[in-house]
Structures are given as structure tokens and as C-alpha cells.
């Protein structure tokens, strides 16, 4: 089971990375272009989100009919209802960083293979931000 979960993780990561690469979302300028709705708007990210959420919605339908995941004892899923100040403040801060750099965590990490210097600076800063959050015990 542990080995199979490791392979599932590897395959899932591989699909995710190839999807990011194919979609054009590893180009920070295009992601910034999606957020630039008052300028030269680039709608691509909306198509990426549309495609991904459509497939994942099917995934949730199948999940509802499965007593347990294929290679684990149970589904371990976060709650869906709690809306608090942390959620909103954290998401707002994430959005500012996303708009400044044109990168969110997935594309930032994947871009290490094409732009190691710039992506490395972004990823190191992102990890530092996560470590600050951890140290602050928020």
C-alpha cells in the first residue's frame, strides 16, 4: 500500500507537471495577463481552471461512491464550510504575491526545470514565507 501510494503520488505529480507545461501556466507573464483584466487580458487560465475543475468534479462523483480510496484505508479530506479571518487574510496575501510574481506554488516549483535562477529565488522566498508562518504558530 505504501509503495502504491508513492507511485500514485509520482504519477499524479507527473500529470500535474505536464498539465502545467502544456497549459502555458508556467509562463508568469501569461498568468499576470489573466489578472490584468483592465489591460490586455489573457483568458487562458480560465480555460485551465475550467478543464481541471470539470474533470475533478467527476472525480468527486466517483469518490462519493467509493467506501475508501484504492490504496489507503480512508479518505482524509479537509472541511468545506469554515470561513474565517485566516482563510480570507491568507488568500488575500497569496493573491498579492501571485499578482506581483505571476507565479503560484505549482508553476513556481515546476519552473525550476526551465528557469532555475528566477524560479529558485521565488521558491526559496515561498519556503521562507511558509517557515515564517510555521514559526509564528498562527
Amino acid at each position: 500500500m505504501v509503495m502504491r501510494r508513492a507511485l500514485v503520488s509520482l504519477a499524479s505529480g507527473g500529470l500535474f507537471g505536464s498539465g502545467l507545461a502544456v497549459s502555458g501556466m508556467m509562463d508568469p507573464k501569461r498568468v499576470r495577463g489573466f489578472l490584468d483584466i483592465f489591460g490586455d487580458w489573457d483568458p487562458t487560465l480560465a480555460f485551465v481552471m475550467g478543464g481541471a475543475t470539470a474533470v475533478m468534479a467527476l472525480g468527486w462523483l466517483i469518490q462519493g461512491r467509493m467506501p475508501a480510496p484504492a490504496f489507503a484505508d480512508e479518505f482524509q479530506l479537509p472541511g468545506t464550510r469554515l470561513i474565517d479571518l485566516r482563510l480570507v487574510t491568507g488568500s488575500a496575501m497569496f493573491g498579492i504575491g501571485w499578482g506581483l510574481a505571476g507565479l503560484c506554488p505549482g508553476p513556481g516549483l515546476a519552473a525550476l526545470v526551465i528557469e532555475p535562477m528566477s524560479a529558485g529565488i521565488f521558491v526559496a522566498s515561498m519556503v521562507a514565507g511558509m517557515a515564517v508562518h510555521r514559526a509564528a504558530k498562527l
Binding site: F16, V22, G24, F47, V48, G51, I62, P69
Partner: peptide, 20 residues
């Protein structure tokens, strides 16, 4: 974008249904 999105959706569905 749509093709890449479908692959990302498959990735997420695989992790959900395989590892929960």
C-alpha cells in the same frame, strides 16, 4: 489551456481516488 487543465484535473482525481 483546456488540454493542460484536463491533465491537471486527472492528476487531482488520481491522488483523491488512489490515496484519498
Amino acid at each position: 489551456g483546456l488540454i493542460g487543465g484536463l491533465l491537471i484535473g486527472l492528476a487531482a482525481a488520481l491522488l483523491l481516488l488512489g490515496s484519498g
